[in-house]
Amino acid sequence: MKSANGITIQDRTYQTLRQWVTVGRFLPGERLKINTLALEMGVSDMPVRAALQRLAAEGALVNVPNCGVMVPKLSRAQFDDILQNRLLLEGEAAERGARQLDATERAQLLTLGKDMARAIAAGDLKGYLDANELFHLILYRACGSALLLELIETVWLKVGPISNRLHDDPHVWATMNDAHDELLAALARKDAPAVRRAIEKDLFCAGQYLRTLCTE
C-alpha cells in the first residue's frame, strides 16, 4: 500500500526507524518491541517487522535468539574503527561543502548553531541531537556527492544509539557546541580547511567521551 505521496508504508516505516536509530532514539542494548513501535507509528506489525529485519541486515540492529531485535553495544575497537571512518568521510564532506554552501544554507547553519546552544542550556538532548543532525546534513549535502553522503549516513547508523549518552557528563555536555562555533567562524572567513578541522574536532572530542562508555 502506498501513502498519498507515493511512498509505501513499508518504506516510510523503514525510513522513520532508520532515522530514529541514527539520532540516538534507542539506547545500546535496548530491545525493540514490534507491537510498541507499531502503535507509536500508527501502522501494523508487518512493516515494522520488515523494517527491523532490514536494519539488522545493514548491521544497525542485531537479531538475538530468544530476545528479538536489539540495538547493538559497541566495543572500543568497533567504536575506534567507526570514528576513524567518520573523521575521513565527514572531514572531506565538510571541506567540500564549505566551498559550495549558498547564502540560505549558511543562514540555516547559523540558526541551528543557536538552536543547539539553547538546547544545551535547557538540557534538551533530543533538541540538540535533532539540530545537530540537520546542521551536519546541510553542510555535507552541499558537497554535491550523493555517494559520500550515503556512506556517512551508513556510519551514523552504527554510532547513533551511543550518542544518547552525551548528556551523561555535565562537563562534556556543556562543551558540545564549541566546535560548531569554530566552524561557523571559519565559514565566515571562507576558510574551508578550517571548517574541516572544526568538524574533526567535534567528532574527536565527543568520541573520546563516548569511547569510555563502550564495552572492552
Results as ranks from 00 to 15, higher is better:
73 K>P: 00
135 F>P: 06
119 A>E: 09
100 Q>H: 09
63 N>P: 02
105 E>I: 03
105 E>Y: 00
53 Q>V: 02
137 L>P: 00
124 D>C: 13
87 L>D: 11
101 L>A: 06
85 N>I: 02
119 A>H: 06
89 L>M: 08
124 D>Y: 12
51 A>N: 13
139 L>Y: 08
106 R>Q: 15
139 L>N: 09
108 Q>Y: 05
92 E>S: 12
113 G>Q: 03
145 S>D: 13
97 G>C: 07
134 L>K: 12
141 R>Y: 14
119 A>V: 12
51 A>M: 03
51 A>I: 05
68 G>A: 05
62 V>E: 11
101 L>H: 02
87 L>R: 11
114 K>R: 08
99 R>H: 02
98 A>Y: 10
53 Q>H: 10
105 E>W: 01
147 L>R: 11
85 N>T: 04
91 G>K: 08
74 L>N: 01
52 L>K: 07
104 T>P: 00
62 V>N: 06
96 R>E: 14
138 I>W: 07
93 A>V: 03
136 H>A: 12
146 A>I: 07
70 M>S: 09
67 C>W: 01
82 I>C: 14
89 L>I: 12
52 L>I: 09
78 Q>S: 12
62 V>G: 01
72 P>R: 01
106 R>G: 10
85 N>A: 02
80 D>S: 08
69 V>F: 07
92 E>N: 12
69 V>S: 00
101 L>Y: 03
66 N>L: 12
93 A>G: 07
147 L>Y: 10
64 V>T: 13
53 Q>N: 15
124 D>L: 03
112 L>W: 07
119 A>I: 10
146 A>F: 08
61 L>Y: 13
105 E>M: 08
65 P>T: 12
86 R>V: 03
73 K>I: 00
131 A>H: 11
146 A>C: 02
105 E>K: 08
75 S>K: 10
51 A>H: 10
90 E>W: 04
142 A>V: 05
126 K>L: 15
72 P>S: 01
108 Q>A: 01
71 V>P: 15
147 L>E: 12
131 A>P: 10
68 G>P: 13
79 F>W: 04
127 G>T: 10
84 Q>W: 09
61 L>T: 13
58 E>S: 06
87 L>E: 11
80 D>M: 00
56 A>D: 14
82 I>R: 00
144 G>Y: 03
145 S>C: 07
60 A>H: 06
56 A>K: 11
57 A>R: 15
61 L>S: 14
56 A>H: 12
56 A>R: 13
95 E>H: 04
96 R>P: 03
70 M>G: 04
60 A>G: 07
54 R>S: 09
86 R>C: 00
147 L>N: 04
80 D>P: 03
52 L>G: 15
101 L>S: 06
122 A>D: 13
55 L>F: 14
131 A>Y: 14
137 L>S: 11
116 M>P: 02
117 A>H: 10
57 A>H: 11
118 R>W: 06
79 F>M: 05
54 R>C: 09
66 N>D: 14
128 Y>L: 00
56 A>E: 13
